[in-house]
Design a binder for these strands. Structure first.
Lengths: 140, 140
DNA sequence: CTAAGAGCTAGAGCGTTGTCTAGGTCAAGG
DNA sequence: CCTTGACCTAGACAACGCTCTAGCTCTTAG
C-alpha cells in the first residue's frame, strides 16, 4: 500500500504532497511551534496528521505568501492553542496583517508605476534606434 | 563646516542621509558592484559621490522594495556600465521585473481576500460574544 | 595643535527560513 | 524474512542582505 498510514492519519509525505511544503519544512514548522496542536505519533514514532492540520498549513501558506513572518504565525498559533477567550487578540493580529498587506500592495503599485516609466523609456529608445543613452543625461 | 566634502562631491554620510541607506549598506553595495561607475575617492581615500549616484540609489531602492534581488540589480548595473548597445537586454530585464511585480500584486490581492475573510469571521465572533470557537469545527 | 567625529578596510556575525546530512528505525509488498 | 522506501532526530549548512567590529586614518572646528 503506497497510500500512507492506513487509517490512523496522514503521513508527513502525504501532507507535504498536499500542501506543497517539504517534509523538512514540516518538521521545521513543528520545532518552531507553528501547529495548532501537538502532532500525534504512531506507535512507531511517525507523525500522524489529520485534515485539519492540512487546512491550517494551507492557511499558513497564505500568511507566509503574504509576508507574515514565521514569528507572527507562531504567535497566532499560540493564541489559538491557548483556547477560547483571546479572540480579540487574534482579531487584532489579523487586522494588523491585513493593514500590512494593504500597505505592501500600495507600495508595490507605486513602484510598479516607476518601473513602467523606465520600461516605456527603454522601449522608445530601442524603437528609435539605440543612440541616445537612456542612461546618463536624464535617463534616470 | 558640517556640510560634508566642501566642493568635490557628496560624502558617504550625506548619501546615506539622502537615500535612507546606511553607510554600511552603501559600502556593501559598492563591494557588490551595484553602482553604475567606480565611485571616485578624495586624496584621503574617502568616497566622493555625485547627485547621479544618489538618483541611481533611489531607483535601486524602488527595485529592492519591489522585490528585485541584489543579483538582478547587479546584472542591470552591469549592462548600464558596459555602455550603449545592450538596451534591448536592459529592457528585457525590466519587463521581466514588471511582470514579477504584477504577479506579486495579484498574489497579494488573492491572499488579502482570504485574510479579510478571516478578519470578518473573527469580528462576528467577537461581536456575538466569544462563544463558538472560531477555530475548530469549521472556523478555518 | 588637538580632539572629536567621519570615513576606511577586511572580515566576522546575524536573522530568517528553510535544506541537507548522518546515522539509524519503521512499514509493507513479495 | 528481506529489501526498499518513507520516516525519525539532532545538528550542520546555506542563501540573502545587510550590520557590526576592530583597528586605523582623515578632516575640521576650536
Amino acid at each position: 500500500m503506497l497510500g500512507g498510514m492506513a487509517k490512523n492519519g496522514l503521513s508527513i509525505g502525504e501532507v507535504a504532497e498536499s500542501t506543497g511544503l517539504s517534509v523538512h519544512a514540516l518538521r521545521f514548522f513543528e520545532r518552531e511551534n507553528l501547529f495548532l496542536r501537538e502532532i500525534p505519533r504512531t506507535a512507531g514514532g511517525q507523525r500522524a496528521y489529520d485534515p485539519a492540520d492540512v487546512d491550517w498549513l494551507v492557511l499558513c501558506n497564505r500568511f507566509r505568501d503574504s509576508g507574515m513572518p514565521i514569528a507572527t504565525i507562531k504567535e497566532f498559533a499560540g493564541l489559538v492553542r491557548s483556547g477560547p477567550g483571546n479572540e480579540r487578540e487574534r482579531l487584532a493580529l489579523l487586522e494588523e496583517h491585513e493593514r500590512a498587506v494593504e500597505a505592501r500592495i500600495a507600495a508595490l503599485h507605486e513602484n510598479l508605476g516607476i518601473i513602467r516609466g523606465k520600461v516605456t523609456a527603454y522601449r522608445e529608445h530601442v524603437r528609435d534606434g539605440t543612440a541616445a543613452g537612456v542612461w546618463a543625461p536624464s535617463g534616470n
